[in-house]
Write a protein that binds this DNA or RNA. Structure first.
Length: 570
RNA sequence: GGGCCUGUAGCUCAGUUGGUUAGAGCAGAGCGCUCAUAACGCUUUGGUCGCAGGUUCGAGUCCUGCCGGGCCUACCA
């Protein structure tokens, strides 16, 4: 039996994430995890907060908190929101965990042993007022090319010319505005990725089935200019994983930490170790997912991420893994996504533009958001959120097609036969035709889910819901009831049986609604392998209840109000 | 500047290795049903597939150029 290891890109710690962040990795990975669990496969689904780096320190300072305290609070907030959206992580870890400190230092030590680390002395801009080194984009000044006053140290937004911070005229700190800057000499570790270029190139070449978005970005970095460049993996910061070789100190690296992009992917592994500890299990429990010498040979490892994360997952992290010369599990498939835009522009934290995870849950239940986001997940190109589209999709698909189906069937039965599955009648041609159709659609649905074609899967699922309404319309139990109650009973029994089937098939997308359906029908169900059998599972006499309205519609007024509320200040 | 992605009905999107009259959902129109959240079902109107060339017996699909949108470009993460 194949085991499935799934990781979602780690949300950064510096604030509450918006819907674009959610749909770009966590939500689709959750669908895939739920689907695989439903099939009975053993799944390990990992996510964590990514807590290191300059922006985390600045966010903490802005919040007037110590950075460790800030990260702990924000981790709790994000974990709570993840639960609110029903993200079914087996563990939601923290990149600041002791496990990650230990593993990150371990990998660095191995890379050094294998001659893949180089010490480089370089010049960095230091801000006396801020008491810290400034990354290029945290330095602003006048562009030497076009004269734009607020050019950033890496690139001028106005003329798009790439810059070096020392090019700027009258440079200042973007954090404090201070001009008390100086260039200091500082020593850093570089990972010699360039020596692994051919190996990485050959490895990427094997991945014929990966999304073009994934492989093309990797190829660009491998072949652009002089090819893959070495990458600095340390920073002059206080908050992070202290630079060590395994458990040994690293001469000349005192007071420095590893670069956030070096330790963040290692947290996928460390979070699994956190999971083991949290569940009172030994190291072998997590190592069997990650070490091919300890049982991970039968693991299929799938990563989900936004396109901005691709280079780090196709090149940097594999360099770390391969360079260690230890039998760690490499990724088998990378599913990458484009971006979700908001009503004609980008989501913007600073402008308060767009919907953030906490706000979304304040307004409507998670299933509404999950369904819309997943039916519009940016798989082939960027996609766009509009309130009008959101309202239409939710009202039509969830309220009218699925919710109303459950409602009409259960209420009709209650009125004519009471709140139990009626006896009498039998399944005939009409029912067998529905079984045949669902069988066919289920096969397609399974194929899309295995391939992680999320949008195609949603439209197939919707078609399966529609089949129920079509059936009722042509079977007309309300008309039959007047002349042939037995026949009507058979129809209602069949229709009632569709509800648990729909619940199971819908669970990866709308888990709360699936629960509601199963609870109402007072049953449990497995992923169907035999649709005919599944539609015979509720027998005559089985008691059920009529659920409350599963999905209340979004009114035009409510839609307009929400649109106003989230328009931002642009 | 360079690289990649993208432009198909009013809207959101499918369109396998080029092969007869270009598909789906929503929206619009008409009809039907009345069990149901005025829900459901059936039928139907919308497209010189961004533009211009080219290859081919044949191109939405391949090539070239142009126009528009997006992302990345290695020190934000």
């Amino acid at each position: 039996m194949t085991r499935i290891l799934i990781t979602s890109a780690l949300p950064y710690i510096n604030g509450i994430k918006h819907l674009g962040n959610l749909v770009g990795s966590q939500l689709p990975s959750d669908v895939y995890a739920r689907f695989n669990r439903a099939l009975g496969r053993e799944v390990m689904f990992i996510c964590a907060t990514d807590e290191h780096g300059t922006p985390a320190e600045l966010a903490a300072a802005k919040a007037g908190q110590d950075v460790a305290e800030y990260c702990a609070d924000m981790h709790e907030t994000q974990a709570k929101l993840a639960k609110g959206f029903r993200l079914s992580f087996d563990h939601y870890g923290r990149s600041s965990s002791p496990q990650n400190h230990k593993l990150t230092q371990h990998f660095a030590g191995k890379l050094a042993e294998n001659g893949l680390i180089e010490e480089v002395s370089e010049k960095q801009v230091y801000s006396n007022a801020d008491g810290r080194y400034l990354p290029d984009r945290y330095i602003e000044g006048e562009c030497p090319n076009c004269g734009f006053a607020d050019a950033r140290g890496d690139q001028c937004e106005n003329c798009t010319k790439q810059l070096d911070p020392t090019d700027l005229i009258n440079p200042r700190s973007a954090i404090s505005g201070s001009t008390d800057l100086e260039v200091r000499e500082t020593k850093h570790l570089y990972l010699k990725q360039s020596t692994m270029r051919d190996k990485l190139d050959a490895w990427i070449d094997e991945k014929k089935d990966w999304p073009v978005l994934t492989t093309s970005i990797a190829k660009k970095w491998l072949h652009d200019g002089d090819g893959l460049r070495d990458r600095g993996i340390t920073r002059d910061l206080d908050w992070g994983v202290p630079v060590k070789k395994g458990d040994q100190d690293w001469d000349g690296m005192e007071g420095k930490v590893f670069y956030v992009w070096f330790d963040a992917p290692i947290e996928y592994i460390a979070a699994t170790a956190e999971w083991a500890e949290a569940n009172g299990l030994g190291d072998d429990a997590w190592e069997r997912w990650w070490r091919t010498d300890k049982g991970a040979d039968d693991v299929k490892y799938v990563q989900f991420m936004g396109k901005d994360n691709v280079p780090f997952h196709t090149l940097s992290f594999p360099s770390t893994i391969m360079g260690s010369n230890e039998p760690w599990k490499l990724v088998d498939y990378i599913k990458s996504f484009n971006y979700l835009n908001y009503d004609g522009g980008q989501f913007s934290t600073s402008k308060g533009r767009g919907v953030f995870m906490n706000q979304a849950l304040d307004i409507l239940p998670s299933d509404y958001w999950r369904w819309w986001l997943l039916t519009h997940v940016p798989e082939s190109s960027d996609s766009e959120f509009t309130w009008d589209n959101f309202q239409q999709t939710v009202n039509k698909d969830l309220a009218d097609v699925l919710g109303n189906f459950v409602s009409r069937v259960t209420k009709f039965c209650r009125a004519k036969f009471g709140e139990e599955v009626p006896a009498g009648g039998s399944y005939d041609d009409a029912e067998n035709a529905v079984i045949a159709e669902i069988n066919k659609r289920l096969e397609t649905y399974n194929t899309h889910m295995e391939a992680m074609d999320i949008r195609k899967a949603t439209s197939e699922l919707r078609a399966i819901w529609v089949a129920g309404n079509e059936y009722l319309q042509s079977a007309e139990p309300w008309a039959k009831f007047k002349t042939d109650p037995e026949a009507a009973a058979g129809i209602v029994r069949f229709a009632l049986n569709l509800i648990p089937l729909y619940a199971v098939l819908s669970e990866p997308f709308i888990p709360d609604a699936a629960d509601t359906m199963l609870n109402a029908m007072n049953t449990k169900a497995d992923w169907p392998t035999d649709v005919a059998a599944a539609l015979n599972s509720l027998e005559a006499g089985h008691a059920f209840t009529v659920p409350d309205v599963m999905f209340a519609k979004i009114s035009d007024d409510a839609r307009d109000e929400m649109e106003q509320q989230f328009a931002g200040q642009s």
